[in-house]
Write a protein that binds this DNA or RNA. Structure first.
Lengths: 211, 211, 211, 211
DNA sequence: AATGAATGAGACTTCATTCAT
DNA sequence: CATGAATGAAGTCTCATTCAT
């Protein structure tokens, strides 16, 4: 068992045979970037480890020094992608302050970021079910955490209702925007980015009694 | 190996080596039912043609008399599943008449059917990207058709707005309910079926200015 | 799980994907003969499944229709080899009758057969530790059974002593002859087959108080 | 990469890249001890060079400074193990003197030492055929030398017969005791160490006309 | 001399598809 | 038309060995 353990904050552990942490971080990023790219293009199952290696400029043997299985790569890719999206939203909201229209700002941030990260979102929706139990749970836990984060942001923006309603609302607010990714083939034919975003913002504001 | 062609109403053609149309229909249904079942359980890529055969009580050789590839089976399964869901909604709305609350009835029908067909919906969202171009387009065409159908139903129920808004709205109405399937792992912890349905109906009514 | 089960009398089960029992028997024999040949020449670990396939005139895919793993092949080969040796001894002793010199005949049968099956015996001594637990136990059970058989034959030939002594004696009688295989590199330089056999028979007769 | 040559007394040469002979001797002993341990536990083929390194507290790179291949390690391990056993026997017999029962003492020494070195003996019988020609010949030469040593000891103890008979006898005396290792799974169920040793001594004494 | 990351050949195994019966 | 055995391409992963630092 030459593989040691590395714990990305809060996620599941992916073992590595390499000791130098900096190197692990760098090579993994190289690997993840390539994997995300090629998974988005061909899908996880159609992608071979060799494809990933080629895209990452790593030999197969080297890849397996930083990861124990192809599944690990998928996990790392999904984790990266989810984190990237959520961080982008959090970052957007960090500079929010106590504005009048905080709620609208939240909705807009969520949707706009979704627009920017469409491909990432699609990757998650297409491939996350190929994750094994542990990996999936780890990813879903991140999503849950994000839903809670949005729930709190909404509360801070003055949205109040029963717990169950807030729960559904937070789910709607985090889920409905995925439509821009999952229905883009149908939306793009008719609407521009701005139109879609505006329409969704308005729709949700009304749904949240803030129309 | 003369594969003739068979056109399932409106979809892409799947070739068969068998002449007798009735037999083709029967065997394919057998195949589809089994495939849907096993795909829902294990996923398309994890399922072997042998698995499907076992579930359908057909040998591998026989399967290939009614289908040209494993991909064909996926297409037939997806087509079946989408059609089943949409037919169920249409059926629900057929008995609608000119009620006052037609819009709410539409929304409720869409969501409730979604609840009933959760597993089917998941199958589509998980596996449709494994379809080849033609098959995917065929399925998406069905979805588009359904969105249009809902759009018209909404109009008939008195919802009027600009074309682009109606387009987005119809997309929201057909998309947001998939949340009950795609977020069930998070919703089920807190809410009952009725609560979720009611909340979604109310939310959408307001979003559509009918709250 | 397309593999059904086949139980070679008393041994562990090796699954097969093929239904026709006659075919399974024939193909397995083909496989086993080839495997024994090539294992004897190159050893189990140095032999690839492709090598076995080439020797057996079976493609790799076909092999895996009759066996689930390379380990299964080793098990089948070991089982065959042990059985062949033991059957040969039993066969020799079947025609024994109630002779005066029954004990000597037993010893001679064991040793001579060992001489004839030297290569088989070497295969067992070289590769049996590569078997997995279950397979090894199955093979060892066969050996134990054989030791008991010899023990009874010795008793029938008038050898009597305490149970523990009989146990050791039966072990010696079945073990010492393996020397002709395991020490052949050293024996062959000096002695002929007959000399070795005679010397061993005489030695054992004396050891068993029948000199 | 200039590998120089080092000759372990009388065996085949194993090259090293390191100059300092003391260091070579020390590191190799470290390596051998670890290798023997891990080979006994998992077998040669199942053991990776990394495993050996971990057990020896040496990195892979370092190992290859003292050895040219994994096969070299096996050779060193086998050589060590054979030597250890034989030295133990020789040591036992050194203090023998001109006793009446010298022959019995010899037999007892051989068997008892075999008992003590069971695991070593098993290692030889399990893995020596993985050695390459040269290495194997080197080990077998050691065995032959030992057989001759025992032959002479027997002669000194008054055992006399024709050359071929003496040769076989010496082989029996050195081979039969391996039964305590190779049949221990069957012997241990019934007999204690002392019983087995006594029975073997008695059996061999009689076989050698000294019963 | 030690380290440990990189390499890449090659092993086992799966499975969609074909085809003789 | 059904059967089910045969095929072989292709995939994942391991690991002995090398080599830059």
């Amino acid at each position: 068992m030459a593989h040691a353990q590395k714990a990305p904050s809060g996620g599941r552990q992916v073992e590595t045979a390499v000791k130098d942490e900096n190197r692990v971080r760098d090579r993994r990023q190289q690997l993840i970037d390539a994997a995300v790219r090629v998974f988005m293009e061909k899908g996880f199952h159609e992608t071979t480890v060799r494809d990933i290696g080629k895209a990452a400029d790593l030999t197969q043997g080297t890849i397996y020094n930083y990861v124990r299985s192809k599944d690990d790569i998928l996990y790392l890719a999904c984790d990266h992608v989810v984190t990237a999206y959520q961080d982008a939203v959090r970052h957007s909201l960090a500079s929010l302050g106590e504005r009048e229209d905080a709620l609208e700002a939240i909705l807009r941030a969520v949707i706009e970021t979704m627009y920017d990260y469409q491909d990432y979102i699609l990757l998650i929706y297409h491939e996350s079910h190929a994750l094994n139990r542990d990996s999936l749970h780890s990813i879903l836990a991140r999503v849950e955490e994000f839903v809670d984060f949005i729930k709190e942001a909404m509360a801070a923006a003055g949205v109040h209702d029963s717990g169950t309603t807030m729960h559904i609302w937070a789910n709607i607010v985090t889920f409905l925007p995925t439509m821009v990714a999952l229905r883009r083939w149908l939306l793009r034919r008719v609407q521009s980015r701005e139109e879609v975003i505006d329409a969704l913002v308005v729709f949700m504001l009304k749904g949240l009694d803030r129309g």
